[in-house]
Lab assay of single mutants.
Amino acid sequence: GSLMYASIFGNVSAIIQRLYSGTARYHTQMLRVREFIRFHQIPNPLRQRLEEYFQHAWSYTNGIDMNAVLKGFPECLQADICLHLNRSLLQHCKPFRGATKGCLRALAMKFKTTHAPPGDTLVHAGDLLTALYFISRGSIEILRGDVVVAILGKNDIFGEPLNLYARPGKSNGDVRALTYCDLHKIHRDDLLEVLDMYPEFSDHFWSSLEITFNLRDTNMIPGSPGSTELEGGFSRQRKRKLSFRRRTDKDTEQPGEVSALGPGRAGAGPSSRGRPGGPWGESPSSGPSSPESSEDEGPGRSSSPLRLVPFSSPRPPGEPPGGEPLMEDCEKSSDTCNPLSGAFSGVSNIFSFWGDSRGRQYQELPRCPAPTPSLLNIPLSSPGRRPRGDVESRLDALQRQLNRLETRLSADMATVLQLLQRQMTLVPPAYSAVTTPGPGPTSTSPLLPVSPLPTLTLDSLSQVSQFMACEELPPGAPELPQEGPTRRLSLPGQLGALTSQPLHRHGSDPGS
């Protein structure tokens, strides 16, 4: 009898404990919600809404976190579960008819179910419309201010047509639940991603989709105040780019002037030289400038040598048109050559190039014969006009050509200096018209024969001689050997007369 009593008592207590286990969990969670309300000092109306929603959600799901349970299964099984949970929507909604099984599984994985109690606001006026909503159960109302403009029910759709707008718009009203509602919502990016994977279904979906109420604000059109608020930074940046392009296009129409201050000032006329910023005076940081632009901040801005204009002085008759350009485009679109090309026009420029290279940067340069637009006047290309890779490749080509020119210049200078040193070592320090008596009659020769300089066969020296023939050397430049009979510069000019005159010897006659 005691054994029977113990078994009955144990079973009854276990049954009672299981009955009250759900209630215990409910009270535990309710205590957490109330502690949250007390800690954050939530006001009474919002506090009442929180408690009511918790009670309804507990009775609806029995305190089970559906998302946590669903995430515990593998992905393939999750797709089947989501397809079952959203079967009513996918079967009865017209846009989803005719979709393949794979497309429906992908869509079912992207849908999220939302449960809303009465009085809950789903979308506020001015919120971004980031999702498309399908009503599965219940009814909602749409308000503009305090005026109800629409009441939607089961199988209705609200949001915005995503295929017509590249960016999400703003809501033009509040969406509030009238009863307990079940909503299926899919985010904008998720829907577009699935439709991109199934393009054959995309056309059918957009053609058959009928949005019951379009929440997009109709005033959000390009150029409206609301649109400016939504895309303020983007609009200002776009206007700045367009104004920069218009100014650079105007600059290219004036090829007669070359400016070292950047493309923003290349198009300024002579009357605007004294102004601080020219056409860019209202925004000094709008356009890029070269490193020399920092010198323009000092006094005497109108007389600054940074602004270059072609000189009108005539060229000498024998002067060549100019050196070879550094870039391939210089032959086609440049009416002034790079300062480095002028360094190779003569030997005198070679000796004085490194010492006063900055001073020569603004000297007169030889002109190319074609009066085409200036290379320095070409505006900086924006990322939309020329690819970045093209600019980098041009810079690399320019750097390689500069290296080759520097190597060639160093070799030419070394060769010229070597020839000058050899000339100085071969010439005796001094010569006299009267020579010392020699031991015999073989001493009648006034000077030792001097062998002429070897013929220069280097390509670089031939180019130097060509430049010497075309360029007029300055007075202080050293002379180079030329073709024809060679003669030492330090010898007297009348050596031929010395050989014809008898030598005057000093000596005593033994017979006297």
Rank of each mutant, 00 (worst) to 15 (best):
D127V: 01
D127H: 01
L128K: 10
L128W: 06
L128T: 15
L129A: 03
L129S: 01
L129Q: 01
A131V: 05
A131N: 10
A131T: 06
L132S: 02
L132P: 02
F134M: 03
F134W: 12
F134S: 02
I135C: 07
S136M: 05
G138N: 01
G138C: 03
G138R: 01
S139E: 09
S139M: 11
I140N: 01
I140P: 02
E141R: 03
E141T: 11
L143I: 11
G145N: 06
D146Q: 08
D146E: 10
D146I: 01
D146L: 03
V148P: 08
A150T: 09
A150V: 03
I151Q: 12
L152C: 03
G153H: 08
K154N: 08
K154E: 06
K154I: 04
I157A: 12
I157N: 06
E160I: 01
P161N: 08
P161A: 08
L162W: 08
N163C: 09
L164P: 10
Y165H: 12
R167N: 14
G169R: 01
G169F: 03
K170Q: 09
G173W: 03
D174G: 03
D174Y: 07
V175D: 02
V175Q: 02
V175F: 02
T179V: 04
T179N: 08
T179Q: 05
Y180S: 04
Y180Q: 06
D182P: 01
D182V: 11
L183Q: 01
H184A: 08
H184R: 07
H184T: 06
H184L: 07
K185A: 13
I186G: 02
H187T: 12
D189G: 07
D190L: 01
L191M: 08
L191H: 01
L191C: 03
E193N: 04
V194D: 01
L195G: 03
L195S: 05
D196N: 10
D196H: 14
D196L: 09
M197G: 04
P199T: 04
F201V: 06
S202Q: 15
S202C: 13
S202G: 12
S202Y: 09
D203Y: 08
F205N: 03
F205W: 12
W206S: 04
S207Q: 15
S207V: 06
E210V: 09
E210C: 10
I211E: 01
I211K: 03
F213A: 05
F213E: 03
N214L: 02
L215D: 01
G223K: 09
G223W: 12
G226C: 07
G226A: 12
T228V: 10
E229I: 13
L230S: 11
G232C: 12
G232H: 10
G233I: 13
F234I: 10
F234Y: 11
S235D: 12
Q237W: 06
R238Y: 08
R238S: 12
K239V: 11
R240I: 09
R240Q: 07
K241G: 11
R245H: 10
R246L: 09
R247L: 10
T248V: 14
D249L: 12
D249E: 12
D249S: 11
K250V: 11
D251W: 13
E253F: 10
Q254L: 10
P255S: 11
E257L: 10
V258K: 09
S259W: 10
S259P: 11
L261F: 08
L261I: 08
G262T: 10
P263T: 10
P263W: 06
R265L: 12
G267D: 12
G267S: 10
G269H: 05
G269S: 12
G269A: 11
P270V: 13
P270N: 12
P270W: 07
S271R: 04
S271L: 12
S272P: 09
R273W: 04
R273M: 05
P279Y: 01
G281W: 06
G281H: 15
S283T: 15
S285F: 13
S286Y: 15
G287C: 12
G287R: 11
P288Q: 12
P288D: 01
S290H: 04
P291C: 08
P291R: 14
P291G: 08
P291A: 12
E295L: 15
E295W: 09
E297F: 15
E297V: 11
G298M: 13
P299I: 02
P299M: 01
P299F: 04
S302T: 05
S302E: 12
S303A: 12
S303W: 13
S304A: 14
S304W: 15
P305T: 09
R307A: 06
L308T: 15
P310C: 14
F311A: 04
S312P: 13
S312K: 08
S313W: 08
R315T: 12
R315K: 13
P316G: 08
P316V: 08
P316R: 06
P317H: 13
E319Y: 12
P320Q: 15
G322V: 10
G322I: 12
E324Y: 08
L326P: 04
D329R: 07
K332Q: 09
S333P: 06
S334T: 06
D335G: 09
C337D: 10
N338F: 15
L340V: 09
L340F: 04
L340P: 10
S341Q: 09
F344W: 05
F344C: 14
S345P: 07
S345R: 12
G346A: 08
G346Y: 09
V347Y: 09
V347G: 09
S348P: 07
I350G: 09
S352A: 08
S352E: 06
S352I: 03
F353W: 12
F353P: 08
F353H: 08
G355P: 09
D356L: 11
S357C: 13
S357M: 01
R358T: 12
R360C: 08
Y362Q: 06
Y362H: 09
Y362C: 10
Q363C: 05
E364S: 14
L365H: 08
A370N: 12
A370V: 08
P371D: 08
T372R: 09
L375G: 10
L375M: 09
L376M: 10
N377G: 14
N377R: 14
I378M: 14
S381G: 10
S381W: 05
S381H: 11
S381N: 01
S381F: 09
R385I: 05
R385L: 14
R386K: 15
P387Q: 04
V391E: 13
V391Q: 15
E392M: 01
R394S: 12
L395K: 04
A397P: 06
A397V: 08
A397T: 06
L398R: 02
R400I: 15
R400K: 11
Q401D: 05
L402T: 06
N403G: 08
R404L: 04
L405E: 01
T407I: 08
T407R: 10
T407H: 09
T407Q: 08
R408F: 05
R408T: 04
S410F: 13
S410L: 07
D412M: 03
D412E: 05
M413T: 13
A414G: 06
A414Y: 04
A414F: 04
T415V: 09
T415W: 05
V416E: 04
V416K: 03
L417Y: 03
L417M: 03
L417H: 09
Q418T: 11
L419M: 06
L420M: 04
L420D: 04
Q421V: 06
Q421T: 12
Q421K: 05
R422T: 10
R422A: 07
Q423T: 06
Q423Y: 13
M424Y: 11
M424T: 13
T425N: 10
L426D: 03
P428Y: 06
P429D: 12
A430C: 09
A430P: 08
S432W: 01
V434A: 12
T436K: 13
T436S: 10
P437Y: 09
G438L: 06
G438D: 12
G438R: 09
P441G: 08
T442S: 14
S443H: 10
S443R: 10
P446V: 11
L448Y: 14
V450T: 15
P454Q: 10
P454V: 08
T455A: 08
L458D: 08
D459I: 01
D459F: 01
D459E: 12
S460R: 09
S460C: 09
S460Y: 06
S460E: 14
S460L: 06
L461T: 09
S462E: 10
S462D: 11
Q463I: 07
V464R: 11
V464C: 15
V464S: 07
S465Q: 11
C470G: 09
E471S: 11
L473R: 05
P474M: 13
P474R: 07
G476T: 08
P478C: 10
P478G: 11
L480N: 10
L480R: 08
Q482K: 05
P485N: 15
L491V: 09
G493S: 10
G493L: 12
Q494K: 14
G496L: 03
G496C: 05
A497D: 14
S500W: 11
Q501F: 05
Q501L: 11
H506Q: 07
G507Q: 12
G507K: 07
D509N: 13
P510I: 06
P510C: 04
P510D: 04
G511P: 05
